[in-house]
């Protein structure tokens, strides 16, 4: 298993290199990296030429790319074009914030989806089943930013009418969040609305998977065997049915992690959260290739890691799969 994980990691290195090279090329030809600098007041042509030369912007793309790789090899994502400030500390900060949001959303979405899927399957064609099915389809097709806006409007309306501020509609923390437990509670309080907006799509999609695989398992021969043995219904559901039905659902969930990260671009912007998504959105307008490259590389690595986790989980849950 360890050698398998190692091999899989090694295989993903060339994939990441190829992906970064392609995006580097695309970003290079898609705009003027000096656009922001040109717009500065009182900037002289000489200063612009200086930057162009010191950054090697006239070199061929491959040379520029290799220079970028060299930076990474030294543990840095380079500096912003406009000011000699390191990119990595910013990435570190927003990555940490986004991971809190996304992992919490993923866990909550998964637990809720499993519960809904199991209950729907066990009561197929009941009112509960039809209701969750309908809500799922709405959640599935409804744009998450609209959902986020509705939540914000609702919270503001409640505040205006009652003076009670149920949830904040922006930021990661209050002005004085305190430390330790009070900081944690303050953080969770701030993350609830963004989390809900982000999770609704995942709940909808994972619960459909869970329902479908649960239905298949409930009607399987081995569940009939379990029942014929005289096991209590709860044991049949959890030990015999759910364990099997979870396998495809967990895989889908782990593989969908990238989609969730993509969702943060909108949600973090709507809620003004200092995370990866909003960072990407901000940098996109500035034509500076280096922060964008840093962002894409990190996202690619995170997705690769979650694909690997999906694979290993699959092998752990299904004894028929063996890695060697």
């Amino acid at each position: 298993m360890l050698t398998y994980a190692l091999r899989r990691t090694l295989i993903s290195i060339p994939i990441i290199i190829l992906a970064t090279f392609l995006t580097f090329g695309i970003i290079s030809i898609s705009g003027d990296p000096l656009q922001e600098i040109r717009q500065l007041p009182n900037i002289t042509q000489e200063q612009i030429d200086n930057v162009r030369e010191s950054r090697g912007l006239d070199d061929p793309v491959t040379v520029q790319y290799l220079r970028w790789v060299e930076n990474i090899a030294q543990g840095s994502f380079g500096e912003y074009m406009i000011s000699p400030r390191a990119i990595w500390p910013d990435i570190q900060r927003v990555l940490g914030n986004t991971m809190q949001l996304v992992i919490a959303a993923e866990i909550i979405a998964f637990v809720l989806a499993v519960f809904l899927g199991v209950m729907s399957a066990k009561r197929q064609y009941s009112l509960f089943d039809y209701t969750t099915t309908t809500i799922s389809f709405i959640g599935y097709s409804f744009p998450s930013f609209l959902f986020a806006l509705f939540l914000q409007v609702a919270v503001v309306q409640i505040f205006v009418r009652t003076g009670v501020r149920i949830f904040p509609i922006g930021n990661l923390s209050s002005a004085n969040p305190g430390t330790g437990l009070s900081f944690l509670i303050d953080r969770i309080w701030h993350l609830i609305l963004p989390m809900a907006s982000l999770a609704i799509f995942s709940v909808a999609s994972y619960s459909r998977y869970m329902r479908a695989s649960m239905l298949e398992v409930i009607n399987s021969d081995y569940v009939r065997t379990a029942r014929a043995k005289g096991l209590p219904e709860r044991t049949i559901t959890t030990r015999h049915a759910m364990r099997n039905a979870l396998i495809p659902t967990l895989t889908v969930a782990a593989l969908s992690f990238g989609t969730l990260l993509g969702g943060t671009i909108i949600i973090e912007t709507v809620f003004g959260l200092d995370g990866m998504g909003r960072y990407f959105f901000q940098q996109l307008g500035r034509r500076d290739p280096y922060p964008l490259m840093a962002w894409l590389t990190i996202v690619a690595i995170v997705i690769v890691i979650f694909n690997l986790i999906a694979d290993l989980l699959y092998g752990y849950l299904d004894p028929r799969i063996r890695y060697d």
Partner: peptide, 27 residues
Amino acid sequence: DDELRAVRGKDIAMVFQDPMTSLNPVL
């Protein structure tokens, strides 16, 4: 339900047709 459960697999037990699918693959 409880009385039935006490009979299943205790007083009356069954061997099914297809042993390939009648055992739980993950246990």
